Deep mutational scan, measured.
Amino acid sequence: MAAGGDHGSPDSYRSPLASRYASPEMCFVFSDRYKFRTWRQLWLWLAEAEQTLGLPITDEQIQEMKSNLENIDFKMAAEEEKRLRHDVMAHVHTFGHCCPKAAGIIHLGATSCYVGDNTDLIILRNALDLLLPKLARVISRLADFAKERASLPTLGFTHFQPAQLTTVGKRCCLWIQDLCMDLQNLKRVRDDLRFRGVKGTTGTQASFLQLFEGDDHKVEQLDKMVTEKAGFKRAFIITGQTYTRKVDIEVLSVLASLGASVHKICTDIRLLANLKEMEEPFEKQQIGSSAMPYKRNPMRSERCCSLARHLMTLVMDPLQTASVQWFERTLDDSANRRICLAEAFLTADTILNTLQNISEGLVVYPKVIERRIRQELPFMATENIIMAMVKAGGSRQDCHEKIRVLSQQAASVVKQEGGDNDLIERIQVDAYFSPIHSQLDHLLDPSSFTGRASQQVQRFLEEEVYPLLKPYESVMKVKAELCL
């Protein structure tokens, strides 16, 4: 049975990233139509530049190519590739079939990587351009969430054990800070992308030097003109047959890092959902379990974690691919890159769409948070109580021993009897502590235990987050809708 299948058929496997999760716009960027249309555009740009620099290419040939950029006979191309065992030459023939007058000058002087690699770089750039505003929107939604809850005390956790208090907004800023680093890295790697350009079979530009009869300047002009037509500021000066596969490492490393950030955020949300302090959106008709109707599973956060793990592992592909590119190139890269580049971007696209949807509907339960604080705060307040007693004339050592005994009794009630923490009640009825009984409410005010959390939130948002989001103001209103 021949390899390949009808990918629109229910009898043929289709990647869930495309069929179930990723956005239509990201799927289109990695589609065959987008790819092969870009090949034709690159052939047109090459012909236009070659004509401008004096090669015998007519206006009629150029116009014929322009008129057929979208006229792609995919069936013919597939048949040609089956016959020739070469995808680029299959599309040269297919393009030439609908451009008979231009057929002889299509791909003039070029090698397969002229269309293959340059198209990949265009796709990487455009895919990054799709991700950047999506990530900015996630940051914006979380920034709104953090600002609104900047002063809401909550129990902090280290080692997932109760620690000092923080605020809900401050905790959210930990998430935002990681995503801001990801946004900066995505922008950097996007701006650092260079075009492969017009380089020939081993990167020496020998074929173009021959076409222009040894004119170095025209060869350099050709490279520059096509690079500018493709919208790049610069091209690699040095290439082998391909652009260095280190570029793929750079791009997928940034995406993998984004995956790590999203995994951490969504894990926190899942843990908070278990504590009943916070939940992701839950639709009115949504079913959490087929057997347990009360369940409210954090399905979206779980999906993000599941896909983020996949995204983090994909960076190993370009690392290994770059390491086995012998001399000017081997074909070890080809099949692998067809999979890992598309999957990385479709996965990143999915987790950003999902995280935006989550961040637009996060639900906080202040009463649950308050109750958990009441359970733990008495123990945390013991040092403040000791200091207040010393100020009232008591002995630190005597007070410490009193607190120690009462704390152990209260802990026994919590752990052995399943009761509430009654340390404060014990202190309130103990005559030894009568000098500070009137101060206990103040000493137990949760806001006095959150330090500068709310001020940190305000400063972080104003100095770091809002300036970073400013270039994306025009796209901030787009909502994230999930079908599944």
Rank of each mutant, 00 (worst) to 15 (best):
A2M: 12
A2W: 04
G4F: 09
G5P: 15
G5L: 14
H7T: 13
P10V: 13
P10A: 12
D11T: 13
D11E: 13
S12R: 09
R14A: 06
A18C: 00
R20Y: 14
Y21N: 14
Y21H: 03
Y21Q: 08
A22S: 14
A22V: 11
P24S: 15
F28S: 12
F28C: 13
V29L: 11
F30W: 01
R33D: 12
Y34F: 13
K35H: 15
F36N: 00
T38Y: 15
T38W: 02
W43R: 06
L46V: 11
E48Y: 00
A49M: 13
A49P: 08
T52C: 12
G54L: 10
P56G: 11
D59R: 08
E60L: 07
E60K: 08
E60P: 07
E60A: 03
Q61A: 02
E64C: 13
M65F: 00
S67D: 10
N68Q: 14
E70G: 14
F74C: 04
M76L: 11
A78T: 12
K82V: 12
K82S: 10
K82Q: 10
R83A: 09
L84S: 06
H86Y: 15
D87G: 04
M89F: 00
H91F: 13
V92Q: 01
V92G: 13
T94E: 15
G96C: 11
P100G: 03
L108N: 03
G109V: 02
S112F: 09
V115F: 10
N118D: 03
N118R: 01
L121I: 00
R125I: 03
R125Y: 00
L128M: 12
L130K: 02
L130R: 07
L131A: 15
P133F: 03
P133E: 07
K134Q: 15
A136R: 13
A136W: 00
R137Q: 09
S140N: 08
R141I: 13
L142P: 04
A143Q: 05
A146P: 03
R149E: 04
R149C: 03
S151H: 10
L152E: 04
T154S: 02
L155V: 04
G156D: 03
F157K: 14
H159T: 02
F160W: 00
Q161T: 08
Q161G: 01
P162T: 07
Q164Y: 09
T167K: 03
L174F: 14
I176P: 07
I176V: 10
I176S: 06
Q177G: 01
D178L: 02
D178P: 00
D178T: 07
L179V: 03
D182I: 09
D182H: 12
L183D: 03
L183A: 06
L186Q: 03
K187R: 09
R188I: 02
F195P: 12
G200L: 01
G200V: 07
G203H: 00
G203I: 01
T204A: 03
Q205Y: 02
Q205N: 02
Q205A: 08
S207Y: 03
F212C: 04
G214E: 13
H217G: 03
V219Q: 01
E220T: 07
E228M: 02
F232E: 02
K233V: 10
K233N: 12
R234Q: 00
A235E: 12
F236L: 09
F236G: 07
I238P: 03
Q241W: 00
R245G: 09
V247A: 13
V251R: 09
L252N: 05
S253A: 07
L255M: 06
L255E: 13
L255G: 01
L255S: 00
A256R: 06
A260W: 11
V262L: 01
V262H: 05
H263R: 05
H263W: 14
K264E: 01
K264A: 11
I265K: 11
C266W: 14
C266G: 14
T267L: 08
I269R: 01
L272K: 10
L275Q: 02
K276S: 07
E277G: 02
E279K: 15
F282N: 05
E283P: 07
Q286G: 05
Q286A: 07
I287M: 05
P293C: 06
Y294E: 10
R296K: 15
R296W: 05
R300Y: 05
R303Q: 14
R303G: 04
C305D: 11
L307I: 11
L307W: 05
L307F: 13
A308I: 08
A308M: 12
L311M: 07
T313N: 07
L314F: 04
M316E: 13
D317G: 08
P318W: 05
L319S: 07
L319E: 10
T321G: 04
V324K: 02
Q325R: 02
Q325Y: 06
W326S: 02
F327D: 09
E328V: 04
R329G: 05
D332P: 01
D332R: 06
D333F: 09
D333M: 15
S334Q: 03
S334P: 10
S334H: 09
A335Q: 00
N336G: 07
L341E: 14
L341C: 05
A344V: 03
F345T: 08
F345V: 10
L346Y: 02
L346P: 05
L346V: 12
A348T: 03
D349N: 08
T350D: 03
T350H: 13
T350S: 09
I351Q: 07
T354V: 13
L355V: 15
I358A: 13
G361D: 04
V364R: 07
P366V: 01
K367R: 12
V368W: 08
V368S: 11
I369T: 09
E370D: 03
R371W: 11
I373K: 03
M380G: 06
N384W: 06
I385G: 08
I386D: 11
I386P: 07
G393Y: 03
G394T: 02
D398G: 07
H400M: 01
L406Y: 02
L406Q: 08
S407G: 14
S407K: 02
Q409Y: 15
A410D: 12
A411M: 12
S412D: 14
S412N: 14
E417Y: 15
G419R: 01
G419Q: 00
N421K: 11
N421H: 00
N421A: 04
D422N: 10
L423M: 14
L423N: 15
L423P: 13
L423D: 13
I424N: 09
I424P: 12
E425I: 02
I427A: 15
Y432T: 14
S434G: 12
S434H: 06
S434K: 08
S434E: 08
P435D: 13
H442Q: 02
L444E: 02
P446E: 02
P446W: 00
P446N: 00
S447A: 00
S448T: 11
S448A: 07
Q456G: 06
Q456S: 13
Q458P: 14
F460N: 05
Y466A: 13
Y466V: 13
P471G: 11
E473C: 13
E473G: 00
V478G: 12
A480W: 13
L482Y: 13
L482R: 11
